[in-house]
Design a binder for these strands. Sequence first.
DNA 1: AGGGATACTATACTTACGTATGGGTGCTCT
DNA 2: AGAGCACCCATACGTAAGTATAGTATCCCT
Lengths: 233, 233
Amino acid sequence: MSRQLPARQRDVLNAIVELSEQCGYPPTLQELATHLGLKNRMTIHQHVSALKKKELVLWEPKLNRSMRVSSEGLRLLNLDNESNDSHLRAVPFSEAAPEEDAAEADAQPVGVPLAGRIAAGAPIDAFETPEFLTMESDYAQRGCFALEVKGDSMIEDGIYSGDYVIIKPSPSPTNGEIVVALLEDGSATLKRFYKENGGFRLQPGNSSMEPIFVSRASDLQIQGVVVGLFRKM
Amino acid sequence: MSRQLPARQRDVLNAIVELSEQCGYPPTLQELATHLGLKNRMTIHQHVSALKKKELVLWEPKLNRSMRVSSEGLRLLNLDNESNDSHLRAVPFSEAAPEEDAAEADAQPVGVPLAGRIAAGAPIDAFETPEFLTMESDYAQRGCFALEVKGDSMIEDGIYSGDYVIIKPSPSPTNGEIVVALLEDGSATLKRFYKENGGFRLQPGNSSMEPIFVSRASDLQIQGVVVGLFRKM
DNA sequence: AGGGATACTATACTTACGTATGGGTGCTCT
DNA sequence: AGAGCACCCATACGTAAGTATAGTATCCCT
């Protein structure tokens, strides 16, 4: 098992993600240091170097703000935030950094310009709502992952084969949510989740398919709930 | 009309977008300069300052790589790339920059980790496909915008009310594509586009609705074609 | 003809970023 | 006890980035 990341390195990884998300661009070593309450950049330099060697972080030497968390790095964070929910945020000694985070000021979402609303028959408010539609900014950096859908089990909910569903890891969904369920035989499906009569019902969104009933919780493992859907056309 | 952006400023705006996209982080003034074939950063500094004053660019003074194109800036680029297709790429004097772009090397997409494929009944390849699902990185920075859908005109194509469609501006779609059509009466709809018999047919994806026929091209304006769909759940 | 906007250049200063060097403490393992 | 790791610190250096100042050339406008 190649996993066994030192606690502080995971904190750093987390901080990179957080700061990148907040500012729209990756942090510098100094910003990371003050964010984590450290007095010296060199400490961060060592940690990030270690993370780079493990290929959890992409980092061009000598290049300002070139840090990015790799695919593996993000997945590792997902897993950790899931299983280890009692873990404290970060910030080792001083709970709040003494001076305010300079980087924390100008948070602004990155996204696709949201031009307006298109109604069937009604006029379009062309370019009147200058907002952003944020997609991966909301999900990518924090806990979520994507799955490609194969099959028609949720077609009546507008989830088609070939779509991508965004999954937020959550072992205990509420009734009616669409979940990724891992069954006892090792198969995984996308179904609507209902807890009832002491058991569970997994309801497909396809009237030609039958619901699945699971009585024992140990036979059912919920990987997460669907929080978004994306389709390339 | 507040629009009338000097040609070179739009080039700079474009370059910011391109380089950001390529590297995953915003460029420096120097990188922009060499990318545009300029010998001195100061030129870029002036242009970006102008862009900042017009609020087309967000830029923290003295902060490395803190440039970002604003909402207005992106929209402006969309419009320009659309209407002014004869415009040359950039690069004023020397067509190709003499030295290779240092920033151009390590392009790597940013996105949601794509964990695997979920099949109805088949086992999930849990965490075996370490790729990324890129969403706004593919669209945001280059020409596309989003619209929120209201109505059921495309429900049989899995586009529901409340979804967001990603639109790529394109005045001349090919048959069968889903387009945003602006009709002569000022209304806008989402329909499938067919050019036939010298006229146009706009086919809803809803069998309880009738297609719209338009005979004169001047009565129909295509805002763009749907290249993606996004749903928050 | 003059004013102004656009566009580019050169030189030089200041700062902050990345990095090298050299320590320090506490823990675990053998 | 010593080796090794995780974790932190301070100092110092080279360089690249942002910026201030100053100057040139072209074009358009009234």
